[in-house]
Design a protein around this nucleic acid. Structure first.
Lengths: 192, 192
DNA sequence: GCTAATATAATAGTATTACTATCATTTTTT
DNA sequence: AAAAAATGATAGTAATACTATTATATTAGC
């Protein structure tokens, strides 16, 4: 429903109606819809981290490991894993369209202290570790990791709404673009 | 005021009070606060385009031209140009914190048709042209341009709120990080 | 199977937001 | 000075984002 209506038009009254429940009941589970967004996106990044770790833990070769990591993070989610009660395809769409609203607020620092962004930061750290492993001389592993994470969501958005601003769409995927980007950056920076 | 309160807490009643004017008068100029954000950010990207063109138009050498372009787009705005009635330092902060909210809506496509994102797209195109000029073989000039634009805002945000996710802050600037990134990508891709 | 604890539903209510409408007054233009 | 345009004051509406209260239903432990 949040995916259908978008975050701003979605609310707990409508959700209550849809699931045959009461608005006030939902408020007992989530303080407000912003907290629900934090919960959902946190869950998403946690799931993503699990996928990432699972897909890369037995790869030792740094190039292959990083390639796989970039793929896991930048691919479009097209099927639900059925591992959980949450539909990851829909959640991926929500994250693309709404994630930045979860931290672009005056309350970020406070909510960050309370741990609401821990899973996102942990995923970014894991990715930056793989970048370091591939090239220990590269000076901006954390920034590059955050660029991959943010850039992937952004490219997915652009291909759907501002196609003139990206080559992605059709044949070319955000994965291809970002994989090329990352390895070219890291190969040039081998000597510091 | 939008910078102080953040977009969601800002509204026309408060603005009216502050400037000694009437809520309904403001509605005669802007349909709603979303449209005001579109207006402000559009103005910002137009101003940015002007700065970019002015700073690069007499540079012929592609490396120098692109270097300058990246600097213009990724630098932190610290002083008001006094060219206009708008404070660019504050507007830069608003763009960092609110810009993505202007397009992450269900109405993007409609508003895009009406031209609300034209200046942003024009700026991106100019940047991508410079990228092409530097390296005509590179396959993703538009995506790279949008990554620079989005990535710069993101890195500025991260250094202020999620410092563990970026090397930027203190000595290192988003300009330095992104300049290194762009040239390393483009230098590797000289042969297609 | 009963009791106590807990969760949910129904209803009502509040403060605020995001507007719209109306009409009087002021300012600007010609 | 008259006409046109902009602004102000006031009121009102529908919706949002909740909170509070109390009754009812469900579940858990013994």
């Amino acid at each position: 429903m949040m995916g259908e209506l978008g975050f701003e038009k979605f609310n707990f009254r409508k959700l209550g109606e849809k699931i045959g429940s009461n608005e006030s009941s939902i408020y007992r589970y989530f303080e407000n819809k912003h907290k629900l967004l934090l919960y959902l996106t946190s869950w998403y990044w946690g799931w993503m981290e699990y996928q990432l770790v699972f897909a890369t833990h037995n790869i030792l070769e740094p190039t292959e490991k990083l390639t796989k990591a970039i793929y896991m993070i930048t691919r479009e989610i097209t099927e639900d894993s059925n591992f959980s009660h949450i539909n990851e395809v829909l959640l991926n769409q929500i994250v693309i369209n709404e994630y930045s609203k979860s931290y672009l607020t005056k309350e970020v620092d406070e909510e960050d202290k309370e741990g609401y962004f821990a899973s996102y930061k942990r995923l970014a750290r894991r990715l930056s570790e793989m970048i370091k492993q591939f090239n220990p001389n590269y000076k901006y592993p954390s920034s590059l990791a955050s660029t991959i994470l943010g850039g992937a969501l952004h490219q997915h958005f652009l291909k759907d709404h501002f196609s003139s601003m990206t080559e992605c769409g059709g044949e070319v995927t955000p994965t291809e673009y970002l994989t090329n980007l990352v390895f070219n950056v890291l190969n040039q920076n081998f000597n510091g």
